[in-house]
């Protein structure tokens, strides 16, 4: 099963290299912008509490955007509303279902693709942040050591894995309408959460994670990664069930 799923995932990745490259470029750009915001965030948390920056945007990037790194978001189905009508992911799955491929191999291959994409995009994202922080001679590393920054990255990677793991399910388990509707639903939930969070804590989510990065350390990173892995496993199981039960019209 693993060999077959990896084979299929490798093929899929190879066939979508141009969309992956475009997504990567966009991710690098977002990573660069995030680096500047993160530098200000660290200053506010650990030096000058009066530092002003766009905390909402930083939270939006980490909470809202990093899970999107688990998909090839610059692929055509995400960029055109024709997807609503044509439902290309379901059509792809219809073809794959016509072949003698076990459903668990299909579902697992989608999860592998998701994981590899997340790994690539996240690496690009965090490396861009590192380069920007170094490039702008930020004081960020005065407050956060390399080890702590790694913890910070793993915490967010675990989160992206847990939430982003839903992407294969949305793509292949639902339809084009849901694919385009889901980001709006997610953004709505994000708004409700973030406004309540600001209201109760008086600080941003990323700021709080920076604080716990220093104080909770590796246990928090490991917990986040475990939660990410568990989330991924659950989404994969749900996708397997869904692929077995759905119609590919």
């Amino acid at each position: 099963m693993f060999q077959d799923a990896f084979w299929l995932a490798k093929k899929e990745l190879k066939h979508h290299w141009s969309a992956i490259a475009l997504s990567l470029l966009f991710t690098v750009f977002v990573g660069g912008s995030t680096g500047m915001l993160l530098a200000d965030s660290a200053v506010k948390m650990f030096e000058d509490h009066a530092t002003s920056y766009n905390c909402f945007l930083l939270d939006l990037i980490f909470l809202g955007l990093t899970p999107a790194f688990a998909t090839i978001f610059m692929a055509k189905p995400y960029l055109t509303l024709q997807t609503i009508k044509e439902d290309p992911y379901s059509k792809r799955m219809a073809f794959l279902r016509s072949l003698p491929i076990p459903v668990n191999v299909l579902a697992f291959s989608r999860t592998i693709v998701m994981f590899i994409i997340l790994l690539i995009m996240s690496s690009a994202f965090y490396l861009s942040i590192v380069f920007v922080l170094i490039g702008m001679s930020s004081t960020f590393y005065d407050f956060i050591s390399t080890g702590e920054f790694l913890i910070f990255i793993f915490i967010w990677f675990g989160y992206a894995l847990a939430v982003g793991g839903i992407n294969p399910f949305i793509e292949y388990g639902t339809n084009g309408k849901v694919l385009h509707l889901f980001p709006f639903i997610f953004f709505g939930l994000f708004l409700i959460f973030i406004l309540n969070f600001y209201n109760y804590t008086g600080q941003g989510v990323v700021e709080m994670i920076l604080y716990y990065t220093k104080n909770a350390g590796w246990p928090l990173a490991i917990l986040s990664l475990v939660m990410g892995g568990f989330g991924c496993y659950i989404w994969n199981k749900l996708l397997t069930i869904r692929l077995k039960k759905r119609d590919y019209v």
Binding site: H15, R92, F95, S98
Partner: peptide, 22 residues
């Protein structure tokens, strides 16, 4: 017996278009 059965069936049903980029 999906896999065993499908291996013995040749199906042509207009399903290849989503892989038109290949």
């Amino acid at each position: 017996n999906e896999i065993e059965v499908k291996q013995k069936v040749g199906f042509a049903g207009d399903l290849l278009d989503p892989y038109g980029h290949l």
